[in-house]
Simulated assay, not measured.
Amino acid sequence: MKDFIAAEDRGVLQAHQLDSFEALWALELAAVDEPNTERGGYSSVSRLELDGVAYYLKRQTNYLTRSWLHPFGEPTFARELRNIQRYQKLGIPALRAAFFAERKVAGERRALLLTRALDGWQDLEHWLLDWTARDEKQRLAILRACGELARKLHDAKQMHGCFYPKHIFLRQAGDGFDAQLIDLEKNRRLVFGKRDRIKDLEPLLRRAGSWSETEVWSFLQSYVGSGGDPNDWRNRLGARRKHKEARH
Rank of each mutant, 00 (worst) to 15 (best):
I5T: 12
A7S: 14
D9T: 02
R10V: 13
G11W: 13
G11R: 15
V12G: 03
Q14T: 13
Q14F: 07
Q17F: 12
F21S: 02
F21I: 06
A26L: 11
L27E: 11
L27T: 07
L27R: 04
A31L: 06
A31Q: 09
V32E: 15
D33P: 05
N36I: 03
E38C: 00
S43C: 09
S44D: 07
S44I: 10
S44C: 05
V45T: 13
R47K: 10
L48A: 06
E49P: 03
G52R: 06
A54T: 05
Y55H: 11
Y56M: 10
Y56A: 02
L57T: 04
L57R: 06
Q60A: 09
N62M: 05
L64T: 02
T65S: 05
S67L: 10
H70A: 07
G73W: 07
F77A: 02
E80D: 09
R82G: 05
Y87R: 00
Y87Q: 00
L90T: 02
L90G: 00
G91M: 05
G91P: 01
A94P: 00
A94H: 03
A94G: 02
R96A: 00
F100H: 09
V105N: 03
A106E: 14
A106V: 08
R110W: 11
R110M: 07
R110A: 05
L112H: 09
L113V: 08
L114A: 15
D119P: 00
D119N: 00
D123I: 05
H126Y: 12
W127I: 04
W127H: 07
L129W: 15
L129M: 13
W131Q: 14
W131T: 08
T132G: 06
R134I: 09
D135I: 13
E136L: 13
K137T: 15
L140V: 08
L140M: 14
A141S: 10
I142E: 09
R144A: 15
H154N: 03
K157T: 01
G161E: 13
Y164N: 03
P165N: 07
H167E: 12
H167W: 07
F169N: 02
A173V: 06
G174Y: 11
G176F: 11
D178E: 15
Q180T: 01
L181D: 04
N187Q: 14
R189N: 00
R189P: 02
V191E: 14
V191S: 01
V191T: 01
F192P: 01
K194I: 08
R195N: 06
D196Q: 04
R197N: 04
K199Y: 08
L204V: 04
R207I: 09
A208R: 02
A208C: 13
G209M: 03
W211C: 05
S212M: 11
E213L: 12
T214A: 15
V216K: 10
W217Y: 08
F219T: 11
F219W: 14
F219M: 08
G225C: 01
G225P: 02
G227Y: 04
G228S: 06
D229W: 05
W233V: 08
R234P: 06
N235E: 14
R236A: 15
G238E: 15
A239V: 08
R240D: 06
R240I: 10
R247Q: 12
H248G: 14
